[in-house]
């Protein structure tokens, strides 16, 4: 257990397993879960609130399919920037309004020189290219090389599945 982690108890785990596919679409979904799990509804709501506060649940809501919303151009832009200033640059890139995820990840030399990953989404490749150019402008000479890997097919998208 590292810092910032919480250990879910057995009932938390059962609650996670019961909701990882989605919430029941009924007027009282937390009561329905409570009944299914043999817990009290107040207990279910308190557990979800605690998991949300702890960050085990990032958020509760709708997960859209990018393609269905017209975001057919989904680019993983990857950048080779100096390790000494990656944190400063990563924070700046992450603040751009069109960047949905921004991470420092390892290089795999010699084939993969990129250490900064920024996901961008657009309704056309042109839109994504404009966004990538804005990242390039922001990074300036600190970007030694970059590439954009477009997703051309969703092969699987189920989200987390923990076992029984």
């Amino acid at each position: 257990m590292g810092a910032g982690t919480v250990q879910p108890d057995a009932d938390d785990r059962r609650l996670i397993m019961a909701t990882q596919g989605g919430l029941p679409l009924v007027p009282r979904p937390y009561h329905a879960l409570a009944e299914q799990l043999g817990l009290g509804a107040e207990d279910v709501m308190a557990r979800l609130t605690r998991l949300l506060d702890a960050g085990v649940i990032r958020r509760i809501g709708a997960v859209p399919n990018h393609y269905a919303l017209g975001y057919t151009a989904n680019g993983m832009s990857v950048w080779d920037v100096p390790d000494e200033c990656i944190d400063k640059l990563g924070e700046q890139v992450g603040r751009l309004p069109f960047v949905s995820h921004c991470y420092h990840r390892p290089r795999h030399l010699p084939h993969w020189p990129y250490n900064l990953f920024a996901m961008v989404h657009g309704k056309s490749r042109e839109e994504v290219e404009t966004q990538v150019q804005r990242i390039a402008d922001l990074l300036g000479g600190d970007s030694r090389a970059h590439d954009v890997l477009y997703s051309s097919r969703i092969l699987k998208k189920t989200g987390l599945r923990i076992g029984g």
Binding site: T5, G21, L23, G61, A62, A68, L160
Partner: peptide
């Protein structure tokens, strides 16, 4: 219609070890 892939909690598995 698969406009949504899911509706519910999104988990961050790192936060539970």
């Amino acid at each position: 219609e698969k406009t949504l892939t899911r509706f519910g909690p999104m988990f961050q598995v790192e936060r539970m070890g």
